[in-house]
Write a protein that binds this DNA or RNA. Structure first.
Lengths: 211, 211
DNA sequence: TCCACTTGCTTTGTATACACTGATGGCAGG
DNA sequence: CCTGCCATCAGTGTATACAAAGCAAGTGGA
């Protein structure tokens, strides 16, 4: 792996995991020393982070980690709704019924995943990511997939804003199951509507439990 | 202006204007000589172009200008539809009626702009860009605006695929006027529907007149 | 005491040298 | 004649040195 990739991956993880909180100054020399690479790959990593919107150059002080307020979350979910609703519609029109039937079954049984003591909820988030991937694949649109991918970076970061309790996640799993079923049935209108409902619930969950 | 900005602006313009056609190899040393800067700012410019999707790194050969086929155009318009329909809805809910009334009047009279001999149709495209900017402003969503901005780069590039005759542009202007009116009236459903119609027509225009 | 100028330092922006990787062409062996 | 290996090389990846710009602090004068 290239040094610039390593620097990028490290910094990106540090930002989305809130180890580097918003406002942190990302100085090139300091980072190059801490990461054990020279300034050149660090610069490349910072440029990529700036392009993604995780960091932003500030006059004179170098680049800093971008803020993420509740207003940002609302804006983020507005974009998310536009993209995911359309993606769900297109997946319903083009997707393979068997694939989404299987995902529906898994999601319907996801309550079990959340009873055992997995503090990071890894198994649930992995399943949700599989549904996202299946939708992306069914849609078969590289530009839409790219837009969703760059959006999800920010969503992972937002996730750390709120504490997710098991009851909420079970509710979310049921909503995901509804979406998967609508896609399996080839019903675009329902898929879009279910996505709208899910995102609205998710946003309110987030806003009510964040500090 | 920084050397890297200059290199980026030059290369980006060269790509969207088709002076650098798809498949062109963007070698760092050759570009640094041609643009009169060193390899470092050229690398930065190439990284930005790759992030935008105008170029893509290819194993061994460096980065090349990305292809743009009719299938890509269809995918692009799918994403465009998702973003612009939602943007039109939100603008209808939040926008200032007077602003869009004025734009509607200008667009309704845009037929006159297209009768005089402006071969590049600059005045019309400038007006359409003003409508886009007004919508972005009314929506007030930085993430949605960013997504639309990165989309429009590709759309400008696609525009060169087809030859735009005055009759088509007058038709497009009427469609734009309809959208502006719906937003001015605060009618989100109509704004979204008019956008859908406009984009469908635009896509078919493009596909039928391209070589 | 306050304002302005200067000086020095910190930090980024650019250039260049070197190392390493992947591709390509030729040559030898089968 | 075909195939596989090796050498060469083009080109990127990284490091470091140097230049320029911005900011802050300190000092001098009013």
């Amino acid at each position: 792996m290239r040094a610039s990739d390593k620097a990028y991956a490290t910094l990106r993880a540090d930002i989305v995991e809130w180890r580097l909180p918003p406002g942190t100054v990302l100085a090139e020399v300091e980072l190059s020393e801490r990461l054990g690479v020279s300034r050149t790959p660090v610069r490349e990593a910072l440029a990529r982070l700036s392009a993604e919107g995780l960091a932003a150059p500030q006059s004179g002080r170098g680049v800093v980690v971008t803020e993420i307020s509740l207003d940002h979350v609302r804006e983020l979910f507005e974009l998310r709704s536009a993209l995911e609703c359309r993606a769900a519609e297109l997946a319903a029109e083009r997707g393979d019924a068997a694939t989404f039937c299987a995902l529906h079954a898994e999601l319907a049984a996801a309550g079990d995943l959340l009873t055992d003591d997995d503090p990071s909820r890894h198994s649930y988030y992995e399943l949700a990511a599989r549904l996202d991937a299946a939708i992306d694949d069914a849609v078969g649109n590289a530009y839409l997939a790219q837009a969703l991918k760059s959006l999800r970076v920010h969503l992972v970061r937002v996730r750390r804003l709120s504490k997710d309790n098991p009851a909420r996640l079970r509710e979310a799993a049921r909503e995901h199951a509804t979406i998967a079923l609508a896609i399996a049935n080839g019903n675009a209108a329902v898929a879009s509507a279910a996505t709208t409902v899910h995102l609205d619930n998710s946003l309110h969950r987030l806003l009510s439990t964040s500090h």
